[in-house]
Simulated scan of single mutants.
Amino acid sequence: MVVQAPFPATGPALPGGAQAVDRALALLAAVGRAPPEGASLSSLAQVAGVAKPTARRLLISLMGAALVEQDAGTRLYHLGAGAFLLGLRAGRRHDMAELAADCVARLARDSGDSAFLLVPQGDEVVCLMREEGAFPIRTHALLAGDRNPAGVGAGGLALLAALSPEEAAATLDRVAPATAARMGEAAAHLPADVALAREQGFALNPGRVVPGSWGVAVPVLWPDGRPAAALTIAAIDSRMGPARQAELVRLLRAETALIEARLARPLTPGASPAPQPTLRTPRG
């Protein structure tokens, strides 16, 4: 069987060596994070940590693969059609927002508080979804589309705790300046918070990012054990006593198990949806 490539491989070959590949991927990621108007060569080179001539050569190769394109008028760079096609194909395999939408909605309904879906992206954590519960006092520490350094918030802690202790420690070292800027002195608690989350099997953020805003989270794992996402419930501190933490963890684990079962299912066109859970609890 011949599988057609999702983008044309007609551009010049990338410079040799794994370092060149790493640099090209860093540039591609930087283009993907650029604002809608695009990114300049100088800004991309700075973000990727390469000289402008090197960035230009790598971008030309990425353009040849249709992963990046340059606006003829502004000379700014954007993601290309090849990146779009890859994204579509990846979405068919594991669109996390689609897989977890009903789970996040149930968490918000059954807890009465705010429920979130977060995914790791490099050394950052991105909030894909936020659903509001019925309780009138809410925490607004995290909105859909927000991104934070790894370890910030309950979801970030849960994702780090799902890694090996060595990998989590290395990640915390890399993001230390960013977490200090986001959390101030509270960032010093992160190593202990990650260790406790690993021991307990869930993560707790006792108002370290925004005073009075607490969160509890459980990681969602790929079949190979790597963290795919985190489900989080956040509430004001008065609603996060030990007994209620245990109840929220129970809700989170039930929905996490459902998402993990969906991730483990083979990709079969026309397959029926995964069975829905029977878990129902009164609003908190």
Rank of each mutant, 00 (worst) to 15 (best):
A141Q: 13
M240F: 05
R33N: 06
R56M: 06
S111E: 04
V31A: 11
G225K: 01
T139P: 00
A254H: 15
A170E: 12
R89K: 10
P15W: 07
L41I: 12
I60W: 03
K52R: 15
A197R: 06
A51G: 15
A246R: 14
T179D: 03
L117F: 06
R147K: 10
E255D: 10
R226Y: 00
L190K: 09
A176T: 09
V104D: 04
V220K: 04
F7N: 12
A158N: 10
V194E: 07
A101N: 06
G225T: 03
P223G: 05
R239W: 01
D173M: 06
A228F: 00
L142T: 09
A97E: 05
A65Q: 11
R265E: 14
R92S: 11
L221D: 00
L59E: 05
L85M: 10
G122S: 02
G156E: 05
A229W: 00
V216H: 05
A230H: 04
H189P: 00
T10N: 10
A105Y: 01
A274W: 09
L172K: 14
M63S: 12
A261L: 08
R226L: 01
A66E: 14
R226W: 00
Q70I: 08
P36G: 12
P35H: 12
A274L: 13
R239S: 04
